[in-house]
């Protein structure tokens, strides 16, 4: 070595490069959370969709850590262990949900920790939080689809019934186009419900009468022999007709509802986000169907009864005239 100066220059070179390497190592390491204070969190998934060790973990959109380990815990569940920054720990509540998503179009997989509404304590080190598997979403979507198909079928049936009961198209047309109706949906459904119940009740009563009539011993049998009681029977029948008419109106409401279901951004969205509403609707539809069917059966029975044959012929004629 010739002189001190060259030695020093060599020393500077070595120190500078070592520093650069150290800084680079630190910067990369800090992203992998090797040097910061961290805490652990885990979540079990049924499918991790290609998540890898070292993938980012985000909480409310901030990168807060990395996936430290992925391993099977039984034949269907994968345990994902995460290492997160200590300072974020107080903000993650124990009811938070971990989901797996992809980061942008090119798609590094990431773990999202989604905060949930409601009070909960902050997570502890090593705690397991619940997860929301991508596959589970698929399942849910499938179920929803089946429900939707059922609903569609039901609606189709319902529409058929409604059509057969309807005498004209005018009102139906206007109702179909009326989006304002969507707002009153809840009310309409409530109406529908009560109406259906009422129909059911009156139909039950009617059934009871019919049974009495059939065994020819009851009150009605005696009444038919009497012209005055015959008049009374006539009024009962007209009541029945009025009931049918009312049902008709209810069904019109229902039809509007069904149609607005098909429109985007309208009630569909509202309904879909409200699961109880959907369920209630379903139940109502079943009620309506059941009600309608028994009504139809009763009507059929009535039609073949000797006492009302004449009346029904007259009804049919009238319907023909109106429909024509």
């Amino acid at each position: 070595m010739k002189s001190k100066a060259t030695k020093i220059r060599l020393g500077v070179l070595v120190v500078v490069t070592t520093l650069i390497l150290l800084v680079a190592a630190y910067l990369i390491g800090s992203r992998q959370n090797l040097f910061e204070e961290t805490f652990k969190l885990k979540a079990a998934f049924s499918n991790v969709n290609g998540l890898q060790q070292g993938n980012n973990v985000r909480f409310s959109g901030i990168n807060v850590g990395v996936v430290s380990q992925i391993g099977m815990i039984n034949d269907s569940m994968v345990m994902v262990r995460m290492r997160l920054e200590k300072e974020i720990q107080p903000f993650i509540k124990s009811n938070a949900i971990a989901t797996i998503g992809s980061d942008g179009l090119v798609g590094n997989m990431i773990v999202n920790i989604v905060p949930q509404a409601g009070e909960a304590s902050a997570v502890k080190d090593g705690e397991e939080i619940s997860s929301f598997s991508p596959i589970a979403t698929d399942d849910l979507l499938k179920t929803l689809n089946v429900t939707n198909e059922n609903a569609a079928l039901l609606t189709a049936d319902l529409l058929k019934v409604t059509r057969s009961l309807l005498s004209g198209q005018g009102t139906l047309g206007t109702l179909l186009k009326d989006t304002v109706m969507a707002g009153d949906l809840k009310q309409s459904i409530a109406n529908l419900k009560t109406a259906t119940e009422r129909t059911n009740r009156s139909l039950q009563r009617f059934e009871g009468w019919m049974n009495e009539l059939d065994n020819r011993e009851g009150l009605l049998y005696k009444l038919t022999a009497d012209p005055e009681t015959a008049k009374e029977a006539d009024s009962i029948l007209s009541n029945l007709a009025a009931g049918g008419q009312k049902l008709n109106g209810v069904l019109d409401d229902l039809d509007t509802l069904v149609n607005s279901l098909g429109k985007e951004g309208g009630t569909l969205h509202y309904l879909n986000s409200d699961t109880t509403m959907t369920k209630r609707l379903e139940r109502i539809m079943i009620n309506v169907e059941g009600g309608t069917r028994s009504f139809e059966e009763n009507m059929e029975a009535l039609r073949h009864h000797w006492l009302f044959r004449k009346y029904f012929r007259k009804m049919e004629k009238e319907a023909e005239n109106n429909g024509g």
Partner: peptide, 16 residues
């Protein structure tokens, strides 16, 4: 050692 340092200087600093 001295020759090594001299060569380090030759290779490192001179190529820099």
């Amino acid at each position: 050692i001295n020759e090594l340092l001299r060569q380090c200087y030759n290779v490192g600093n001179r190529s820099l």
